[in-house]
C-alpha cells in the first residue's frame, strides 16, 4: 500500500528548484517594488503631513518681487554677516540683466552683488563704435528655492539634507559626508561645499531667526520690499495676500521641483 506521504509527487531536486525559482522571483520583484515605492514615499509622506497638519502649523514661503529690486546688495551683505558665509560663496545673490537692441542679454553678478552694481554699463566684447544703450534691465535676487520635491534631499546618500515641518530644506552638518552630490543635483546653483566645514551649505531662510518669530536677515535688510517672507498656511499673512493677488512664477518649473520661493515679474530670460 502506498501512503500519500511516501509517494512524492515531485522529486527533491524539483522541490528545491521550485523554491529557488520562487525565492529569486520574490527577491527581484519585491526589490523592484520596494525601490519604486521608496522613491516616492518620502515626498508622498511629506504631502500627507502637509495636508493633515495641525491648524497652527506654519508652512513658510518666500516671494521675490523682481519689479522692485534696486540691486543695492543689502540682502547679500546681511546674509553674509548673519550666516558667516565664506568668501567666494553665496547663500543669496543678486543678478543684473541688461538687454541691448541687437537682442543681446548680459547677465552679471559681481561678487554675487554684495557691493551693489557699478553705474557704468556691463562690459561687452564689442568695438567702441558699435556701443549701444540698453533697452531695458532689471535685477533678480536669488536664493535657495526650498523645493517641495527637492532633488538635493533625494540624492543625499546619508540623509543629511532634510525638510522641516515648516517646509524649510536644511542640512545637518554632523551627518553630511561632503560628497557634493546635492551640489550637483541642485538645478539652481543654490548649494556649495563650505570650505570651513567641508559640508554642503545653502540658504536656510535663516531658520534660527524665523523659528523665533524674526524675519530672515535678507528680508529685514531689503529697503525695497523685494523680498517677502511669511506663513503661507495663514490666509491673513502678508505673503498669502501677495500670493492671492499676484501672478507668480518659479524658476525652472519644467524640472518639476515645485519651489517654495516664488517670483513676481520673472522674465523669460531668467534661468
Amino acid at each position: 500500500m502506498t501512503s500519500p506521504w511516501t509517494q512524492s509527487e515531485i522529486s527533491r531536486r524539483e522541490f528545491f528548484e521550485k523554491c529557488a525559482e520562487t525565492g529569486a522571483q520574490t527577491f527581484v520583484f519585491g526589490g523592484l517594488f520596494l525601490t519604486t515605492a521608496n522613491l516616492r514615499l518620502p515626498q508622498e509622506g511629506e504631502r500627507a503631513a502637509a495636508a493633515g497638519k495641525e491648524p497652527d502649523q506654519a508652512i513658510y514661503g518666500f516671494v521675490v518681487d523682481t519689479t522692485t529690486c534696486i540691486g543695492c546688495g543689502s540682502c547679500v551683505r546681511a546674509c553674509k554677516a548673519e550666516n558667516e558665509v565664506p568668501d567666494g560663496f553665496n547663500r543669496t545673490w543678486v543678478e543684473q540683466y541688461t538687454f541691448f537692441p541687437n537682442g543681446e542679454v548680459i547677465v552679471n553678478s559681481p561678487m554675487g552683488g554684495e557691493n551693489g552694481f557699478p553705474e557704468n554699463l556691463p562690459e561687452r566684447n564689442l568695438p567702441k563704435e558699435l556701443e549701444q544703450l540698453p533697452v531695458r534691465g532689471f535685477f533678480v535676487p536669488k536664493l535657495c528655492n526650498h523645493c517641495t520635491d527637492t532633488p538635493c534631499i533625494q540624492v543625499c546618500p546619508v540623509g543629511a539634507s532634510f525638510v522641516t515641518k515648516e517646509g524649510v530644506v536644511l542640512i545637518d552638518d554632523e551627518r553630511c559626508v561632503g560628497c557634493g552630490y546635492c551640489v550637483q543635483a541642485c538645478p539652481f546653483g543654490s548649494r556649495f561645499l563650505n570650505p570651513d566645514t567641508m559640508c554642503a551649505d545653502k540658504c536656510t531662510w535663516c531658520y534660527h531667526r524665523i523659528t523665533k518669530g524674526l524675519m530672515p536677515a535678507c528680508v529685514q535688510a531689503c529697503p525695497a520690499k523685494a523680498r517677502i517672507f511669511g506663513n503661507v498656511s495663514d490666509p491673513n499673512s502678508e505673503i498669502s495676500r501677495i500670493l492671492a493677488t499676484n501672478r507668480v512664477q518659479v524658476l525652472k518649473s519644467y524640472l518639476g521641483t515645485r519651489p517654495r520661493t516664488r517670483y513676481i515679474g520673472l522674465d523669460s530670460e531668467v534661468v
Partner: peptide, 25 residues
C-alpha cells in the same frame, strides 16, 4: 580622497537614504 568627511563615509551603509542613488554604492 574626494569626500569632505571621509570619516563619515560608512554612514552611507549604516544610515543610507533610500532615495539616494549614491547610497546604493
Amino acid at each position: 580622497a574626494h569626500l569632505g568627511h571621509p570619516e563619515r563615509a560608512f554612514n552611507m551603509m549604516f544610515t543610507p537614504n533610500a532615495t539616494s542613488a549614491m547610497a546604493g554604492f
